[in-house]
Design a protein around this nucleic acid. Structure first.
Lengths: 187, 187
DNA sequence: CTCATGATGTCATACTGTGACAACACTTGG
DNA sequence: CCAAGTGTTGTCACAGTATGACATCATGAG
């Protein structure tokens, strides 16, 4: 495969994140991004199906990390426990990219379209978790309930983790929320 | 306020739903919708901020129904119980519009953009519920957990209710799922 | 060197969404 | 009954997203 300059995809991602933080998502056109990356709009759309995806594609590591973690949980343990293990596992995955995650998150929060896409991605993640749970032996409804509940905890934990300085690790926050969740649903 | 023909807004909604079911969301342009309603594209965008919203605007009855129901719950009862009451309340609200809801839902499920917007609406609803819970005295995190958990049940219940023929009422389905949820999180 | 391949550019085009302004029906006050 | 005022719609122009068709060109294989 021919290549003159390194990593067009990476350059597009970086250019986009830069411009979005500099002047905002809506104030940045695809042409702007492409130009800063030394490419054209047409090429941008060869790498990303739409403008939003430049911030989301590549974050599929999450899905892999979580489903991998799920596989390692004792298959006798209940569904939600398995999901919580998967959430904890992602904690260490994110510790590395903390600053990037925060930057990216701040851009997303400034724009409705981007928040919309974020919800979609989380929903897709929930679907993948549910599938993994079904393969583990859960019935479909239990699987969906457990997966979506786990993702509620994940999402809130993530926000708290970003908001707090360095007080607690993602894992600790998530752990506390899982506890609170179990208290909440106690009849 | 001047008006020659009745209810431009309603005509646009009806035209959109018709065309979307006939030839699909993507195969329908805003100009098509407007034309069938006897209007122009420019007018469409005066009633709806974007093409998707024509299927969602007006469904805010849900939010009102749920927060109203919340207010009627004994303020001593726990957060999730209040939320479940709100979900049950919506059940009767939807019994009336069942066929419409099913039609609308089927259109939404055929298209990624529309599913995306649906998630956003549910997220907004969850936010409103959480706020209502906070006003009731819950702390913010508990409120968010309860609201989002309740909406997980709501969403899954809705899908099951649509999928089943007439077997069970929405309320019965939701009730069973709330029970299953409490079993799920029992440590 | 030549050819096949893959990445990129160019050009054309449909559609979404918005601003500015004109046109028009209807209402109200005189 | 007319005139001014108000709200709704149409017309026009335009920026931006997204996609198809085709040309171009660097590179690596033979």
């Amino acid at each position: 495969m021919g290549r003159w300059e390194p990593d067009a995809l990476g350059r597009l991602r970086a250019a986009a994140l830069d411009l979005f933080t500099e002047r905002g998502y809506e104030q940045t056109t695809v042409a702007d991004i492409a130009e800063r990356a030394g490419l054209t709009s047409r090429t941008f759309f060869r790498y990303f199906p739409d403008k939003r995806e430049v911030l989301f594609q590549g974050a599929e590591g999450l899905e892999g990390a979580m489903t991998e973690a799920l596989k390692k949980v004792d298959s006798a343990s209940p569904a939600l426990e398995a999901v919580s293990a998967a959430v904890y596992a992602v904690g260490s995955y994110m510790g590395d990219i903390r600053d990037f995650a925060r930057l990216r998150r701040n851009v997303i929060q400034t724009n409705a379209e981007l928040r919309e896409r974020e919800l979609t991605k989380l929903s897709k993640l929930s679907g993948a978790l549910a599938e993994a749970l079904i393969r583990r032996g859960s019935n479909p409804i239990e699987a969906q309930l457990a997966a979506e509940t786990g993702l509620v905890v994940f999402r809130i934990s993530f926000e708290l983790w970003i908001a707090e300085g360095e007080l607690r690790s993602f894992r600790d926050i998530a752990h506390e929320l899982f506890l609170q969740m179990s208290l909440l649903t106690r009849v």
